[in-house]
Design a binder for these strands. Structure first.
Length: 949
RNA sequence: GCCCAAGUGGCGGAAUUGGUAUACGCGCACGACUCAAAAUCGUGUUCUCGCAAGGGAGUGUGGGUUCGAGUCCCACCUUGGGCACCA
């Protein structure tokens, strides 16, 4: 028997599989596996595997380094650390040719990895037969009003004269020349993805998707639905109104000013009324020049008051000032907000900076759940406005407290305001009456708090709304307190450290903590106060009632908003599908006729940016100048092209029917194959690619091209291989592992097997060359087992049982993407087989069959050596024998107080009584229980006995 | 700041519904084979006390529920990922 040599085996079988078209078996199973988003790389990679015990993993794309090969995707992916477009331009190559060369290169790469490739299904987004249908989808979107032109801000490098995507920016500098990027508005094609926002959100839950919860959550956050209300604020002495959007109508009585985005059109309309227009204009220009990045990075909020403008709060008629500030975004909601500094962090920060009033209208509500003062369920509450005073000593760090005499109740000073008294006056009076101290200096008012408790002296449930004042004593001057008060409570000074343990009511402990902590707004829901008839409602209740009132009075309405924005769909580049639109002076933007598709890219010599806002196509006048499809007059073609996301948003549909020239996909074929059963891709696509693809799919569903609402039934993402040092593979760190080298040294099977063995499939894991040695050793063992193969029947129940348990485990683990434990189970089996003298040839066949998806070459080779002419991949997947995996003997664990003390071999079906008797016979157990009382014995069938002493 | 995920030996990682923590692999140590080395095979390998038998501790930290917790509950710490002024 010769030695195991991957270099001899692997090329042989790669050629064979290619010739035999092993892939075709997948067609029979009618399961559609689109394995990664890019048709050329990863998507094609995985077709080696057992047709039944399929392995749907993409070994190649786990290597960051190999993503360089994804240049194959024509629309500019990562090539050797540079975007493909840059690489092509720098080397003066036509990007399309460059891409094609790389496709060939990649095919070779795939073969080296031992992948077969479905050559028939090949297509490219540079291929007009494919992009024809991408353009067709665009035409349909345009027809339904879902594609529109708009001026959108882009990052513009004034030195390179190019547009830069957000991901190409490092600290706001251009990647190529390092120039500071500026914000510029440009005409762009935009797709109305927001029309689909609600469906993109709800179908995540209602279409029975088997996706990782993590990705679902990420998509929900990205869509970012929020429910709130739009409210009109009238501008005093003017016919103009300003609409604000808020999710917290319940805080509106705390609104002390309003803020409008600088770009908001109303700012210009109010020009004549603004007293400080010069100042305002300066601010508008400043904020316009900031890029989005800068705007985000600036921690400090800036803004300017529009002097002379007052807005009227429709709920209480109060006039509040209006500010323009760029912390309010023009594109979200109405571009204007009501500011409630007491209950919103951003407004709070702004109010502190510009010294604006902060009005508390909501506080938390505490329910006394312990005695004394535990609320009596079912009894009504008596509501009362109340004050709470915290008084600090003039010299010492001590605070004034009351110890109540009738009940075990310790508090700060509390009370209720009387007719005609302000809350502050009431607080001062209570301090005077209950403690005698006369001269208080108000330091500040603290956030309000509500408290539900049982008032023991008054024998009733009380809901008290506290306004809280923090005083410091000016001096020691005080008067005698009344006899009644003396009987009721004792006045004590409590040191700062002891206050928290001194206080009984939770509400006061909370207040004490806010006093000690950093001053911050209360942003949670709570109970309202100072809010007219809405006072003492909960936030939820108030929102409902207030919105009702707004709608009745017609000054506002319920409104749902999404964070997700429309999809900016055009790029100022050469490559990419041309947008099939002609601009006519008379008719505007006109779609070209479907018959003219595909609208092909012209051959050009120069792919450099034009240095204007137009894409490179604009320079090719013979292509640009055309006639208007509508009126026949002169027209100019759209020179922007589509982004890389366009083609990748529907390629899985084209896989089904790649050569169809009559339709995007034939209806019956579509019904047959869709939805994609399993989609394996990188985690980096969790939001964008997957949302774009889902959006297009839903649109195609609406125009009846596809029959399912969702494209991908099951979604799993693959983790990357990190460098040996645990960092991401990168030239910068010098930790790049080249799979070619690994293959040369260990073989394709070892690499493939190790990748699956190294850890959980969707987790990033550091590469370890030593680890590959381990799996190579395992393959050597499997190879050497050949020597022990015999044909006679030798009874070995234990091994037989282990084999069938392994088949069961491997089958289940593959289904659950737990390849690492599947391999470990096979290792255990092989270790056992190695110890035995012989191995029955039928059993050996079973072993290599379950190994075949993981290490296809060696499995195929061993299969042939056993005398088979057919490929191992044409065999059916083994089934385990349930009789054989049933255990006759089990290990029963004996515990004392939950600690393992002994274990015994017993029959699997042992009864509780028998087990107990056996346990008591154990010497170790005897010594542990002797002289002790047995309190309890717990028996878990087939597992253990626990004796409690 | 917000959302999500994860913290287990020297390392990658195992551990169905709470039921023998550290499977499998790497590394390391010792032994066999060898003139020698590599390869291969065998034994051992959580820490700790002990010559041993045996005991104690132990899954990021602190509490809790339970006969029994890596697994469930509460609080906190750390790391990774995503979002980031979304009102």
């Amino acid at each position: 028997m010769e030695n195991y040599d991957p270099k001899l085996i692997e090329p042989k079988w790669q050629e064979f599989w290619l010739k035999e078209g092993i892939y075709k078996n997948y067609e029979k199973s009618k399961k559609f596996y689109a394995l990664d988003m890019f048709p050329y790389i990863s998507g094609s990679g995985i077709h080696v595997g057992h047709p039944k015990g399929y392995i749907a993993t993409d070994v190649v794309s786990r290597f960051k380094m190999l993503q360089g090969y994804s240049v194959l995707h024509p629309m500019g992916w990562d090539a050797f650390g540079l975007p493909a477009e840059n690489y092509a331009i720098k080397n003066k190559i036509n990007p399309n040719i460059f891409v094609k060369e790389n496709i060939i290169r990649f095919k070779k790469q795939l073969e080296m990895f031992g992948f077969t490739y479905d050559w028939d299904r090949e297509f490219s987004t540079t291929d007009p037969n494919y992009y024809k249908w991408t353009q067709w989808i665009f035409l349909k979107l345009f027809e339904k009003g879902l594609a529109y032109e708009s001026n959108e801000p882009v990052n513009w490098c004034s030195s390179c004269k190019t547009v830069l995507a957000n991901e190409d920016l490092e600290k706001g500098l251009c990647e190529r020349c390092g120039t500071q990027v500026v914000q510029k508005k440009m005409r762009q094609w935009v797709l109305k993805m927001t029309d689909y926002a609600d469906r993109l959100l709800y179908d995540l839950d209602t279409e029975g998707l088997d996706w990782e919860e993590q990705i679902l959550e990420q998509q929900r956050n990205w869509i970012g639905r929020s429910e709130g209300a739009e409210i009109e604020f009238q501008i005093s002495n003017s016919e103009f109104k300003i609409k604000v959007y808020t999710t917290r109508v319940d805080t509106i009585f705390g609104c002390t000013y309003c803020v409008i985005a600088p770009e908001h059109e109303t700012v210009q309309k109010l020009k004549n009324k603004i007293e400080n227009w010069d100042e305002v204009e300066k601010y508008l220009i400043e904020s316009q020049n900031k890029t989005e990045l800068e705007r985000m990075e600036l921690k400090d909020k800036t803004g300017v008051e529009l002097k002379g403008i007052k807005l009227i709060n429709p709920f209480n008629g109060e006039s509040v000032p209006l500010f323009a500030a760029d912390y309010v975004l023009a594109h979200y909601g109405t571009g204007a907000v009501m500011a409630v500094p007491a209950h919103d962090e951003r407004d709070f920060e702004f109010a502190k900076k510009y010294n604006l009033p902060i009005k508390n209208v909501i506080g938390p509500c505490f329910c006394q759940q312990t005695e004394p003062g535990k609320i009596k369920e079912k009894e009504p509450f008596e509501e009362r406005d109340a004050v709470l005073a915290i008084v600090k000593h003039q010299d010492k760090d001590e605070y004034l407290g009351l110890k109540w005499k009738q009940v075990d109740w310790k508090t700060f000073i509390t009370g209720g305001p009387e007719e005609g008294q302000t809350a502050e006056e009431a607080a001062r009076m209570e301090v005077l009456e209950e403690t005698g101290y006369k001269n208080l200096k108000l330091i500040k008012e603290l956030p309000m708090v509500h408290s539900k408790f049982y008032h023991v002296p008054k024998k009733l449930n009380r809901l008290a709304h506290f306004r809280v004042f923090y005083f410091e004593l000016e001096n020691d001057e005080h008067q005698e307190i009344s006899e009644i008060d003396k009987k009721r409570h004792e006045v004590v000074w409590v040191t700062k450290e002891k206050v928290e343990t001194f206080l009984t009511p939770e509400s006061q402990i909370y207040t004490w903590q806010t006093l000690l902590g950093k001053e911050k707004p209360y942003v949670d829901d709570g109970v309202l106060a100072n809010s007219d008839k809405y006072s003492s409602m909960t936030s939820e209740e108030a929102r409902e009632k207030m919105t009702e009132w707004l709608e009745k009075e017609k000054i506002g309405e319920k409104k749902i908003n999404y964070k997700m924005r429309d999809w900016v769909f055009s790029r100022q580049r050469y490559w990419g599908e041309p947008i099939p639109i002609v601009h006519c002076e008379k008719c505007g933007a006109v779609a070209i006729s479907e018959k003219e598709l595909p609208l092909k890219l012209p051959e050009v010599e120069n792919y450099e940016p034009t240095g204007t806002e137009e894409g490179p196509l604009a320079n090719i006048t013979e292509w640009v100048n055309t006639t208007c499809p509508k009126c026949g007059g002169p027209g100019k073609r759209e020179t922007n092209t589509m982004p890389q996301w366009a083609g990748s948003s529907w390629y899985y549909l084209r896989y089904i029917d790649p050569k169809n020239n009559e339709a995007l996909v034939e209806k019956n074929k579509e019904k047959d194959w869709m939805p994609v059963d399993l989609y394996v891709g990188g985690a980096e696509h969790a939001t964008r690619h997957l949302l774009y693809a889902r959006f297009w799919h839903k649109f195609l569903y609406d125009i009846k091209v596809v029959s399912t609402k969702e494209p991908f039934k099951k979604l799993v993402h693959v983790g990357l291989v990190d460098g040996e040092d645990g960092r991401k593979m990168s030239k910068r760190w010098g930790n790049v592992v080249n799979p070619d080298d690994v293959i040369n040294e260990f073989g394709v099977d070892s690499l493939r097997l190790y990748e699956m063995f190294m850890g959980p499939f969707s987790q990033n894991i550091a590469w370890s060359t030593d680890g590959v040695k381990g799996v190579r050793r395992f393959l050597e063992k499997v190879w050497k087992l050949q020597k022990k193969v015999i044909d006679q029947v030798v009874e070995n129940k234990k091994l037989e049982s282990l084999l069938h348990k392994t088949i069961k485990k491997v089958t289940e683990d593959i289904k659950n993407f737990r390849f690492n434990t599947a391999i470990s189970a096979m290792m255990i089996l092989v270790n056992e087989l190695e110890k035995g003298k012989n191995i029955l040839s039928t059993n050996y066949k079973l072993l290599i069959t379950i190994l075949s998806p993981f290490a296809p070459h060696i499995a195929e080779e061993l299969w042939e050596k056993l005398g088979h002419k057919d490929s191992i991949f044409l065999q059916s997947w083994p089934e385990y024998d349930p009789e054989l995996i049933r255990d006759e003997k089990i290990t029963l664990v004996l515990q004392i107080n939950g600690k393992v003390r002994d274990s015994i071999e017993v029959d699997a079906g042992i009864s509780e009584k028998e087990a107990k008797e056996l346990a008591m016979q154990s010497e170790k157990i005897k010594t542990w229980v002797s002289g002790k009382e047995i309190k309890k014995v717990i028996f878990v069938k087939g597992k253990l006995i626990n004796i409690v002493i």
